[in-house]
Each structure stands twice: as C-alpha cells, then as structure tokens.
Amino acid sequence: MSRHRASPLTLWLSLLGALMVTVLPLPAIVDSFWPPWVTMALIYWCMMWPRLCGILTAFVMGLALDLLGGNLLGQHALSLSIVAYLTLRFHLRIRIFPLWQLTMTAFTLMAIDAFFVFWADGIAGLPTGGSGRWTQVIAGGVAWAPTMALLDHLRMRSENRGSRFT
C-alpha cells in the first residue's frame, strides 16, 4: 500500500484536455458562460491527489493559460497557485464534504481565482472586462458536479488499473 498509484498520465492528460476545452472557439453568447475548466480540474486533483498535483502544477498550468490567452504573463499562474495552496491546505476537510458543500467550496475557490486575475488586470491598468468574468464563475459552480463525476471516473479507472499490476 506504500506505492502510490496516482497516475501522472491521467493528471496531465486531463489538464491538457481542460486547456483545450478552454480555448475552444465558441459563439460570443456562450463565452460568458464558459466555466474555468482548468481551475476546476486543478481544484479536483489538488484535493484528490495532493502529492502529485500541487502548487507547481498549478503555476505551470497558469503560465500556459496566460500564454494561450495572451494575458499578462503570470496572472493566472499567481491566481492558480493561490487556489492550489488553499485546496491543499484544506484538502482532507473538503474531501469529506457532501456534494452541495463541496460545490460551494469549489465555487468560492473559483471566485478567488477570478478575483486575483481581475485584480492583476486592474493594477496593470488593463481593461477589467464586464460581468463575463463573474458569470463564468457561476457557470463553473453549475458545472462542478458533472465535471467532478467525470474526473472521479477517470481517477477510479487509473487507480484500479494501478492495483491490477501490483
């Protein structure tokens, strides 16, 4: 049981998938309701596989988001690092929450993420955008339960596959 069977492949593939879904071209109406997939995936993995997915993972994903989005470099890296830290700090407590409480926690973490990005934009004097930033967070809250079900499925599969070989 000392072997840990968290699979880096599953983690990185799911994060890559989240990145790709994030940059999917969509009609402008949907844009404001497109959940922050990378943030959601990071919260989930930091909670479930805290040894594999940590602050550094979040930082790297944040840099990727900044580069893909053409944002100030380091903006998402900062916000996601903080989110990952908070998740890691409380991961044992969050894990046993019932679903509605977990959704609220994830929602709060996504709001924190959005807030830091918003803050950095404000300090840098960039346009801080309209309400789209915050409706995305709400969309993230709505999409949390199904997303978690999907990631749970991925996690179970990779953990069970691991046990077959040990």
């Binding site: 479930m48 805290p50 550094l56 100030l72 380091g74 890296a77 903080i82």
Partner: peptide, 29 residues
C-alpha cells in the same frame, strides 16, 4: 485515496513554495 496524506510535503513547505511561486509570478507580471 491511494495518494495518501503522509509525506505530503517534502522539501520546502507548501507555504514557502507558494511564497516563492507568487513572487515569481509577480516578477513575471
């Protein structure tokens, strides 16, 4: 989960790691 809690943080503690990365992010910005 199998990725269990003991030996969670090696090396610099999570707080220190966060501080380093946040500083790095701010410098990058």
């Amino acid at each position: 989960t199998p990725d269990s809690e003991p030996r969670l943080f090696h090396g610099p503690g999570p707080g220190l790691r966060l501080l380093l990365l946040v500083t790095l992010a701010v410098v990058l910005m």
